[in-house]
Write a protein that binds this DNA or RNA. Structure first.
Lengths: 332, 332
DNA sequence: CATTTTGGTGGAAGCGCTCTCACGATCACA
DNA sequence: TGTGATCGTGAGAGCGCTTCCACCAAAATG
């Protein structure tokens, strides 16, 4: 591998000038810049990232941290979309993304060590759970970070973007109420995640406002199989429900299968609404009425929050909340 | 961030001794080792990876390169499983994995630059396509690498593991022949991938040996939707088929949906076999008879091939081929 | 014309680490 | 007791890069 020294020698300039020419090129004559560019080309020179980041204290790498099992990461289109957008936006700034999938436990310790170790300049965290305490850890480390989805603990210490899940769940539940449902159940997300908590809270708030009972609730885990299992329990314990708000489309897809097997027509016998609208909602039978989760916008905004920290300046945590948007299809 | 110097000073030893104590600790007295360990603990010291790899010329990082669109990477359980195993095995050696998803074009250029740039010590490549020419590029760069799935070009230059797709496809097609099918079609994988080519070749070889026609073939793309589309074409052009070998279970799942809609009973009207056996095969209706794709073994072996290169020694390309294993269910 | 400012440049320090090498102390063996 | 071998150690070089600083020439200013 050629070094900067060789490039400089070939270009007939000093190492300092060669370095300046390669990085931005301010305070370099056009002649020198050209000579360096030619030498770089001729030698196939690529700067040694280790040497560079030893002095700049930058690695030009951002971690995307997902505290989940890899099965779920890969099964849920949410992560694919998020990773896609994050990678895309950061690529424009020539920042590499490294994906860190780690469940609480040993893996998480490894991940934390990695983040502390100076391997990355910052982190985007997706799918935060209460007891991984990533917000606290990252704040303690002092690593620039942005969360996609409000962390349930330590939210006041970090930058984050969040959809207004409470409002979204309330509005979509109101669709059920307006169409005449009187016995409305819910399959929630995990209660150790803000999305799980908030959507359940929104559901309850809508029912309370309408003076309806809010006791038909089963906790799900945001997976399709989990939705299936939860729906079975719900149907067994509350056979009279005529409306169902499911906290994610993926779980709703599972629930719809259960309803079909149970011979309940959707939406006639029981109206169903989901949450997320990431593509699955269009493909279920019947297509799901749901709430759009603005993943792309959230991811983009999170990256912006992160870059703001990287570019110096901002240290006071900022948050950006996105308003919900209903998507009406035929399931309710 | 504390440096090695501070650790050494606190422990009352030289920087050299501290370094030795931290890395392995051979040729260090027990007393010194303990003093260093305490100092590390007290200071919360973590070695600076840039400084370290500047001198060791190692980054302790391995790239997993996937030349595919991110949608497919996330939709296909094949990648999830592969990534899982690769990460797991490399973690035992304290090697980090960075996932590089890049389609041919600009992204691929970025990826290649990244691989050349000394960011990683080696690469595992999954899902190689003919014209991404990764095998040639990696061989040219001289980066230690191992392919999961034989590359269609440049295979002689690189290490790889591969299932015996020809034998697998032949055997599973024979199941169709043995149960009496006489008009057997296939939905192939992409013809720019060895898995696509080989499985089609195996199918043809079985038909040839039985003296059956092998003209009912449509190319698929290893996605569920692609399987659906391909099956529709196949049914239109060859309505008389009574057997179908699909080159992946995911595509077979799509095909089964089409067959159901068309009112063809499986396996009575048309027997279907798939390929991969990664979980989907059990969940289709009816469950798929298929060939097991030993992803775990292949991934583990690929890592082993990579580590052999990293540990010095081996430079002459080696390959490991896995024998197929039939899994009989009810679709044929 | 004397002076300050500017632009382009190279020398050299130093980022934090590993590792070679030389050196003294300790040990085993004759 | 003498002679190697072995062990633990620290001084110091150097990995490849950026960047501070001093310098000089040319341009702009009084």
């Amino acid at each position: 591998m050629p070094t900067l020294d060789e490039v400089a020698r070939l270009a007939g300039v000093s190492r300092a000038t060669a370095s300046r020419a390669i990085n931005g090129g301010s305070r370099v004559s056009a002649k020198a810049a050209e000579a360096v560019a030619e030498a770089v080309q001729a030698l196939g020179y690529l700067p040694n990232p280790a040497a560079r980041s030893l002095v700049t204290r930058r690695t030009e790498t951002i971690a995307m941290v997902v505290p989940e099992s890899d099965e779920r990461v890969f099964a849920d289109p949410f992560f694919a979309r998020t990773l896609h957008v994050v990678t895309q936006v950061l690529a424009q700034r020539d920042l590499q993304v490294v994906l860190l999938i780690a469940q609480p436990g040993d893996e998480m310790q490894r991940t934390l060590r990695y983040l502390r170790g100076g391997h990355v300049d910052g982190a985007i965290v997706v799918s935060h759970h209460r007891n991984d305490a990533l917000a606290d850890h990252l704040a303690a480390i002092g690593l620039p970070a942005a969360f996609i989805g409000r962390p349930l603990t330590g939210a006041e210490k970090v930058f984050y973007t969040d959809p207004d899940n409470i409002a979204g769940a309330r509005e979509v539940t109101n669709i059920l109420i307006e169409r005449g449902c009187r016995r409305i159940g819910t399959i929630t997300g995990p209660v150790d995640m803000s999305a799980g908590m908030d959507r359940a809270a929104g559901w309850r708030s809508a029912l309370d406002a309408a003076g309806l009972a809010s006791d038909a609730v089963v906790e799900g885990d945001f997976t399709e199989d989990g939705g299936e299992a939860a729906c079975e329990i719900l149907l067994r314990d509350h056979p009279d429900i005529d409306g169902l708000m499911v906290a994610s489309d993926l779980m709703a897809a599972g629930a719809l299968r259960v309803l079909e097997r149970a011979g309940r027509r959707v939406p006639d016998d029981i109206a169903v609404v989901g949450y997320d609208d990431l593509g699955i909602a269009e493909r279920t039978t019947p297509p799901l009425t749901t709430v759009k989760n603005p993943i792309g916008d959230m991811a983009r905004e999170a990256v912006r929050l992160l870059l703001a920290q990287l570019d110096g300046g901002t240290t006071i945590p900022r948050r950006v909340v996105f308003a919900p948007e209903l998507v009406r299809r035929t399931s309710a």
